[in-house]
Amino acid sequence: MDRRSVLRTTVAAAGGAVFSGSLWTGALAAPAQPGPSPYGPLGAADANGIQLPAGFTSRVVARSRQTVPGTSYTWHDAPDGGACFVAGTGWVYVSNSEIASTGGASAVRFNADGSISSAYRILGNTNRNCAGGATPWGTWLSCEEVSLGYVYETYPLGGTAAVRRPAMGRFNHEAAAADPVRQVVYLTEDESTGCFYRFRPTVWGDLSAGTLEVLVAGSATSGPVTWARVPDPDGSPTLTRNQVSGAKRFSGGEGCWYADGTCWFTTKGDNRVWAYDAVNQRIDLAYDDSLVSGTAPLTGVDNITGTRSGDLYVAEDGGNMEINIITPDEVVAPFLRIGGQSSSEICGPAFSPDGTRLYFSSQRGTSGSSSGGITYEVRGPFRS
């Protein structure tokens, strides 16, 4: 998008989840290129093994198979996708568990000062819950990353049972992002020949019924697109991605984030960040590691989130175990790096509702095993 675009900030905080970010107007001028981070270079690793820019600090929030500090709740294995929600004067961070058959999702509730008040289960006995997405009405969509997997709508504040949402399609789900303007939910598919979907609820705010559509386009990496209805969202006997002729293929759909008319999503097979312009119905490349000048700072692209300033934060599955920032003027640079955990991946980046704290997990930690997951918090002078 135009590097000199005037930035506009909007916030829609219905239900507690923050959907905001600067408007990157027009078509992308070119995919993002390496450059200096707005936060400066990374410093030496701290006591948690994390390299951060000056002024930022980290703490460990939870470890798999250990009780969350200040609670009696044991944190889940293989923490993955996550999001934050307003909870009274504090907030909640939810996290999926990418474990077969018993996956589900958990939550940590924070007081206004950032101290932990409680932790608890919000979904259980589901299959490889990888990523997902927050809704404007304050629920968390937890997605199963298995063939014919489901989306589950969960309740971060607890006290309400999760609900399966089959109308949103059965396929190898990864992430979801709600667009409150067009009243749709975008969905990625983690397959080497996967698709990009949107779900149109019959009634906005009620995901029990609606229409599943798939993006249709040519082979180009930019240009106009259309949408077509998926005839059978159940995906049996014909998989959803094979039901519509001309459905555009994406190489391993991963993270998904909506802000100000654009849905950003990542594909791990080709290390790309895509921008779907929902206003003009077109796609463009926001980042492609094969098109950068010099050494690509961002590889193994995975989960993605954004901020009010319009900055995108993209977590790596592998790579250098970094979270990279992509700015509205199309600069990509490392924001943090985790050392000594090369057999892990970074998952679930999400900002607290006030934008001052970033949560994320190392799925397998230093052990390289799903039982070694670590969930972190980073505080500092994030751009607002």
Rank of each mutant, 00 (worst) to 15 (best):
I283T: 13
G26L: 08
A247C: 07
A32V: 05
P233E: 04
G82K: 08
Y186E: 01
A209Y: 03
I338A: 04
G235P: 00
T74I: 11
L215H: 06
V244K: 00
H76T: 14
N127Q: 13
Y276W: 15
W257E: 12
P297W: 05
L148W: 10
R383T: 15
W24P: 11
R241E: 00
V86F: 01
R198Y: 06
A105H: 00
V86S: 05
E345W: 04
G340V: 11
M168H: 05
C256S: 14
T267V: 10
V163E: 10
I304D: 03
F19I: 10
D288F: 04
T202I: 12
S5F: 15
Y155L: 03
Y197T: 06
R109P: 05
R170W: 00
E189Q: 01
Y276T: 10
A112R: 06
S20Q: 13
G253D: 00
R249H: 08
T57A: 13
Y73L: 01
R198L: 05
A178G: 06
T238E: 01
S384H: 13
E144M: 05
A29T: 14
T102E: 07
F85C: 02
G300C: 01
R364V: 01
A161W: 05
M168S: 08
A47L: 14
V163M: 06
S72P: 10
T102N: 11
T126Y: 05
N172L: 10
S95F: 04
L298N: 09
